[in-house]
């Protein structure tokens, strides 16, 4: 039987180092979200009045989704939520933190409730969220690679 991680266990992982504009373009192409705020420097600055382009909020949430898939496996999530606190700019480095805040035995096996956080290099929180997930694989005992 899978052992559930202790309450308060936090997994931390580097999601991206110095986010490149190519990553914004790649996300725009894959998702279909071609909002020029994310890909067109002239539009973002001259028309919309921002210092430069910024990342799709869903790119940040997608990076958190990748971390959750690394931790819990594909198809394990029951719910996944996020709030976008402020913009993520090109050059930002992001760390994801996943904290276990609850667990229970579900009908099909153990479940964990998670608190999610993404912080950038200056310590600013850019994303907060929650998830409920099945726990069917062995989890690392502390942080996984790339954490600081």
């Amino acid at each position: 039987m899978t052992e559930l991680p202790a309450l308060g266990t936090t997994y931390q992982h580097r999601l991206v180092t110095e986010l490149g504009r190519q990553a914004l373009v790649q996300y725009a192409g894959a998702s279909g979200d071609f909002n020029p705020l994310h890909t067109d420097e002239q539009y973002a600055t001259a028309v919309a009045g921002y210092p430069t382009v910024f990342a799709h909020g869903m790119l940040t949430m997608g990076l958190m989704g990748t971390l959750l898939a690394r931790l819990f496996g594909d198809g394990a999530l029951l719910t996944f939520t996020g709030r976008f606190a402020t913009q993520v700019w090109p050059g930002d480095s992001l760390d994801g933190r996943v904290t276990v805040i609850g667990h229970e035995q579900g009908a099909d096996g153990p479940l964990a409730s998670l608190e999610l956080l993404v912080v950038r290099q200056d310590g600013t929180t850019v994303y907060t969220g929650t998830a409920r997930t099945r726990v069917s694989c062995a989890l690392p005992s502390t942080t996984i690679d790339g954490g600081t």
């Binding site: 909020g57 949430m61 999530l77 029951l78 719910t79 996944f80 939520t81 996020g82 709030r83 976008f84």
Partner: peptide
């Protein structure tokens, strides 16, 4: 217009 929040129920 910003995307402020997102929730998925699987």
């Amino acid at each position: 217009v910003f995307h402020a929040e997102q929730r998925f129920h699987y």
